[in-house]
Amino acid sequence: MTSSLTQSDKRGVAGDRVFSALTVSAGVLILLTLAFVALFLTVNSRDAVYQEDQGGWILTAFFDYAYPLVIGTLIASFIALILAAPVAVGVALYISHYAPPRFSKGIGYVIDLLAAIPSVVYGAWGMSFLGPALIPVYGWLHENLGFIPLFAGDPSQTGRTIFTAGVVLGVMILPIITSVCREIFIQTPKLHEEAALALGATRWEMIKMSVFPFARAGIISGIMLGLGRALGETMAVALVLSPGMLTASLISSGNSTIPAEIALGFPEAPPGSERQAQLIAIGLVLFLITLLVNMTARWIVSRHKEFSGAN
């Protein structure tokens, strides 16, 4: 039976189906890719934790190998975040709320340009310029604050320390965090900004009252994106850092990060060997750390949903 209700716009329906199929397949594709990466890492890292001729499971051996690298990775990324996040939020605020409109576009482009520089260039800069430039700073820190374990130990003579690597990473993640924050800051509803101003808020108070609360989730997302890059950055760290044993000191040579370890070790590891499996296994560990970081970020963002202004 056909009535005016059972007929429909055929072309419209077909378009709707095609588009829905496209989005679904895009979503499935990204999940599949991720699943395959996880599978590849898991399967190939088996030899790192299980060896027949060494009596089965060798988890302790792997743990002893992996934990200094995990800690090194976290330290370098943490230094990068501490340095970059406040600067990035400040730069983004300057662009969105303080700079005269004529300049703000230009500054935005320059910041975005920073993101386009290849990481090997950052590495070279860190190794040959920033490292040596920081040597006197390390010397000073050691002399005056040497009682803190972070600044104990012999200061590096080349400047190629985990701290230098952290600084280089900080510069590298600055543009990502800045871009995300800037986009969010600009989107703050005028209505909320004017609500604060009309109550007698200065510009900074207005930013505290309406811009930051509105942008909170975006700032966290930006920082997490930056952290993701810092955790996974390979080339710059591999060039800057002269790797070594785990040490609490930030200013002496030593420490290494997972990506740098993989990049430096992989070319020398025979295919199929235990060493290669070991490198893939720490890759899996890095994968899990990143996953954990992102999930934590989501959780933080979703905690105050009710107050987010989205309702």
Binding site: F214, H304, F307, G309
Partner: peptide, 15 residues
């Protein structure tokens, strides 16, 4: 000189 706007604009993150 206080002001009330066209669209209600309570601060969304505040109680």
């Amino acid at each position: 000189v206080g002001m009330v706007f066209q669209r209600p604009n309570p601060f969304p993150t505040m109680t």
